[in-house]
């Protein structure tokens, strides 16, 4: 286990329930249900899963955009989930968010200079105009944009450039932790690789820590040190990124991996493929027991009755499956 002081973010039994109503019938959506994980300083945690699995809600809870129903989010020794609104201010600069669609998060009427300036002066410390100008140049250069672009507006940028601007704005607050929510999904393949490389370079240069949320398991595997696979609000498997392709244990992780199309001609034709039946159940009618059991080919009686806990099976690898030992020894 890693030493306590290296843990920058410690999420314990996080629960986020949303109350909804269909007609007069009240319902509870358990978007995130009892999720725990730790992020070490300088590491990247990848949260991967399909839509509706709770990965974005988890990210939002870390930023306290959502007020968690229950659980603790310990960041630098303080519980974010319990902080008062006034105490959150500091945290908001220290933990930044990067969105999937930077266009939706940029004000179309502000040019790059204004967008970045607002983020820089947000700390309410005195800045001279010269300092701000230099800082804007530095930030733009850092994300490989030309400082000459500072007077442009978001609509004049391409998708990749806009995402770079989104990153520059996040960096303007000098954050320690960045939550990246699907930051490359909207980009073309050739641009996606540029942005992934930029994320990796910035992490090394600035000593950043990422929580990287994405549905593309290949992208997550590339960038993350630790991967948590989520399904219907639960973490079903968590492991070292190196392990995910070599030794996936949970049946959901296995089918997810096998469903991802690859560009390797030979391996695509030889590898085993599991095509899941049915679709992800609605979180308002989450199945009893293991959330995955209705689609799982290995499901037994116990799976519909008891929800398996996330168990450590050694080698920093934990799985939430009743038959984890059996599956992992098969390999």
């Amino acid at each position: 286990m890693a030493e306590e002081k290296d843990v920058i973010l410690d999420v314990q039994n996080l629960k986020m329930y949303f109350k909804t109503a269909k007609g007069f019938k009240k319902q509870v959506v358990k978007a995130v249900d009892d999720v725990s994980f730790q992020v070490l300083k300088g590491q990247t945690l990848g949260l991967v899963g399909e839509s509706g699995c709770g990965k974005t809600t988890t990210g939002k809870c870390i930023l306290r955009i959502n007020d968690p129903t229950d659980g603790h989010i310990i960041y630098k020794g303080r519980d974010i989930a319990r902080l008062k609104k006034s105490e959150l201010r500091e945290n908001r600069r220290d933990i930044q968010l990067i969105f999937q669609d930077p266009y939706g998060s940029l004000n179309p009427r502000q040019n790059l200079r204004t967008i970045l300036k607002d983020a820089i002066v947000g700390d309410h410390k005195p800045h001279t105009a010269e300092e701000i100008r230099r800082e804007i140049d530095r930030l733009l250069t850092l994300v490989e944009l030309s400082p000459l672009m500072a007077d442009r507006y978001p609509h004049e940028l391409s998708g990749g450039q806009r995402q770079r601007l989104g990153i520059a704005r996040a960096l303007a607050c000098k954050p320690t932790l960045i939550v990246c929510d699907e930051p490359v999904s909207a980009l073309d393949v050739s641009i996606q690789a540029q942005i992934i490389n930029l994320f990796e370079r910035l992490k090394d240069e600035l000593g950043l820590t990422y929580v990287f949320i994405a549905h593309d398991i290949a992208v997550v595997k590339h960038i993350a040190d630790v991967i948590a696979v989520m399904y219907l609000g639960h973490i079903v498997e968590m492991m070292d990124a190196k392990q995910i392709f070599r030794n996936p244990v949970h049946p959901y992780t296995r089918s997810l991996l096998s469903a991802v199309p690859t560009v390797d001609y030979d391996s695509e034709r030889t590898r085993e493929r599991i095509i899941l039946q049915g679709e992800v159940p609605s979180p308002t009618h989450a199945p009893s027991g293991c959330p995955f059991h209705p689609r799982c080919v290995y499901a037994k009686d116990i799976c519909s009755k008891e929800c398996p806990a996330l168990k450590d099976i050694g080698d920093k690898h934990s799985v939430a499956c009743h038959f984890a030992e059996q599956f992992s020894s098969e390999k």
Binding site: S190, I191, A193, H222, T262
Partner: peptide, 25 residues
């Protein structure tokens, strides 16, 4: 060739760098 090199691959070892196509379309 550039497109193929830009795609993150599941089989690759961790730590391999992607080779993006520079510039934009």
């Amino acid at each position: 060739e550039g497109l193929l090199a830009s795609v993150p691959k599941l089989e690759e070892e961790v730590g391999e760098k992607l080779v993006p196509i520079p510039g934009t379309p």
